[in-house]
């Protein structure tokens, strides 16, 4: 019981902190922290979506950043072509991510293990090159979005606080959805497939179909993060799809605790704050971050959630 409360207490503390952050920001006049945390929340959303297939589904996708780009480019391209309404942009972003996930998933799920890692990586890199070749939409240089998605007065994305709460609501919504999925019959089948695919197949479950649906759900969720991210930066470029970004997302999931509901959020907060902190100390922050990752892999089993659980028990 005690172990449960240790990780629960920290999670609750973090969530309360996230909800109250705009209050602190407006009281202290620190606008930077609000911008930073908007980014953190969006990437936490992406990490949570990756956790659905990686932690619960056992599918190690190394190409999840592609959806960030697809969602972002859907918003950017539509804005460029004069379609500013968020009611069009967001559904298109989600649909485009879903279709991409369907195609890539159908191909990648023919393989498993390390092949799956490499193939999702290669396809994401393909998406990166395609975006770099889009001369009409800025190519390598990326695409500036001059006007954020317009929700016709319902919510103003240019207002920092409103946008922050929109992102936070999306994050909570996605986590709620994941919670429902994981505990549904569908989710149990997917988790069963992670443990033993052959047995599940022998019982009579069409393994690939379940995994594919899970893959598409996860991709669609990450497409939402992409659309939000593009609105946050007012800019989208092939760089958001670069494979190191996919690696970052994986690190966030592992760091926080794979297969836990709030682990990826924790991972995103810690990873991005650490990055911010280290980059203020030294320009060469990756020199510390790299070996740190190595150490986390070697010694930090189960991520932060795992460590908290063990600390509570010990």
């Amino acid at each position: 019981m005690k172990s449960l409360s240790a990780s629960k207490a920290v999670t609750a503390l973090m969530l309360v902190g996230l909800v109250l952050l705009p209050l602190y920001s407006s009281l202290s006049g620190n606008i930077f922290i609000l911008t930073l945390f908007t980014r953190i929340i969006i990437l936490a959303l992406a990490a949570a979506s990756l956790n659905l297939i990686m932690g619960f589904g056992g599918m190690m996708s190394f190409g999840h950043a592609a959806y960030l780009g697809i969602g972002g480019y859907a918003v950017g391209m539509l804005a460029q072509e004069g379609v500013g309404s968020g009611f069009v942009q967001f559904p298109v972003a989600l649909a485009a991510s879903a279709i991409y996930a369907l195609v890539i998933g159908a191909l990648s799920l023919r393989t498993r293990g390390v092949y799956f890692i490499m193939i999702t990586l290669a396809f994401a890199q393909m998406a990166y090159y395609v975006a770099s070749g889009l001369a009409r939409y800025g190519g390598d240089d990326g695409l500036t979005i001059y006007k954020r998605s317009d929700f016709s007065g319902l919510i103003d994305l240019s207002n920092r606080t409103q946008f922050y709460y929109l992102c936070l609501a999306c994050l909570f919504g996605v986590i709620f959805l994941i919670w429902r999925i994981v505990n549904s019959r569908f989710g149990l089948v997917v988790q069963g497939l992670r443990s033993n695919e052959q047995r599940m197949q022998a019982i009579g479950f069409p393994a690939k179909r379940y995994q594919l649906v899970c893959f598409v759900i996860s991709g669609t969720m990450c497409g939402l993060a992409g659309a939000l991210l593009a609105n946050n930066t007012d800019f989208v470029s092939p760089a958001v799809m670069y494979w190191t970004r996919s690696g970052d997302l994986m690190v966030m999931v592992i760091l926080g605790g794979m297969g836990t509901l709030f682990g990826p959020v924790m991972g995103a907060v810690v990873f991005l704050l650490l990055e911010e902190f280290l980059s203020q100390i030294t320009e060469y922050w990756a020199l510390i971050m790299g070996p740190l990752l190595l150490l986390i892999v070697l010694f930090g089993r189960g991520g932060i959630m795992g460590v908290l659980g063990r600390a509570g028990r010990g």
Binding site: G247, M250, L287
Partner: peptide, 8 residues
């Protein structure tokens, strides 16, 4: 993850 860290 570990070799990703090495790349960084």
């Amino acid at each position: 993850l570990a070799t990703f860290g090495l790349i960084l």
